[in-house]
Simulated scan of single mutants.
Amino acid sequence: MDHWLTTIPPFAVYLLAGLVVGVESLGIPVPGEIVLVAAAVMSAKHELSISPHGIAIAAVLGAVIGDTIGYTVGRRYGEKLFEFLGRRFPKHVNDDVIAYAEHVFARYGIFAVFFGRFVALLRIFAGPLSGSLKMHYPRFLAANLAGAICWAGGTTYLVYYLGRAAETYLSRFSYVALAVAVVAGLVASTMLRRRMEQNVQRYADQRRAYEASEPQD
């Protein structure tokens, strides 16, 4: 396994991390966080010539560029974009999810852009929704860049240093420690996603109740 890993060009890992994070930021539900964590785990292996700095830079660039493209497309096409994504990814992009995301971004503005980077559901909507809501681009860019640096850079270096510590102090058990860390991260991410799904459902129920209470013409 280690021999196979050493044959992977570092540039290919940087490119893949940046590309997947960028595609996710466009509004397409791909596993950007999982790919980023996997790349950071690889950088922690001293046998590999993969730099955590390269991964962090690639992921930040992918996030900023992807969000900017998503912002531009959302500003120009708006509802047509969400209709297309809804047909392609109905589980992740539907009327309830879009309505909740619009509510969050309209209410919290640039703070939703920044903190949304840490939540998968909001991460894929940050660019397109900000554009659709006509958010001032310089403010969007500042929040987008800050969120990308904190999320992509923070995730990369956290996983990297945990991996190096595992190799230093746990020796041959480093893979077990890394697996435990990754599983713990996935569990936390799953719990956060379920909490977000509950928020979406609660908001959808409130919205339907309000619409039902409105007098009919």
Rank of each mutant, 00 (worst) to 15 (best):
D2M: 15
H3Q: 15
H3A: 15
H3M: 15
L5N: 11
T7S: 04
P10T: 02
F11W: 08
F11D: 06
A12K: 02
Y14M: 03
V23D: 02
L26C: 09
G27Y: 06
P29M: 04
V30D: 05
I34T: 14
V37P: 01
V41I: 10
S43M: 07
A44D: 06
E47C: 01
E47M: 08
L48P: 09
S51Q: 07
A56D: 02
L61I: 15
G62N: 02
V64Q: 00
R75I: 03
R75C: 03
E79N: 08
K80G: 08
L81N: 08
F82Q: 04
E83P: 08
E83Q: 14
G86Q: 01
F89D: 13
P90C: 08
H92A: 15
V93S: 01
D95G: 10
V97K: 06
A101K: 01
F105H: 11
R107K: 14
R107L: 06
R107Y: 06
Y108M: 07
F114Y: 07
F115M: 09
G116A: 02
F118E: 02
A120M: 14
R123K: 03
F125G: 04
A126G: 06
L129M: 14
S130V: 03
S132M: 13
H136G: 04
L141W: 09
L141I: 08
C150V: 11
T155R: 01
T156G: 08
R164W: 08
A165R: 13
T168C: 04
L170F: 11
L170S: 12
R172H: 12
V180I: 10
A181G: 12
A181N: 09
G185Q: 00
L186Y: 13
L186R: 15
L192M: 14
E197A: 12
V200T: 05
V200Q: 01
R202E: 14
Y203T: 10
A204L: 09
Q206K: 07
R208V: 14
A212N: 13
P215C: 07
Q216C: 10
Q216K: 14
Q216I: 12
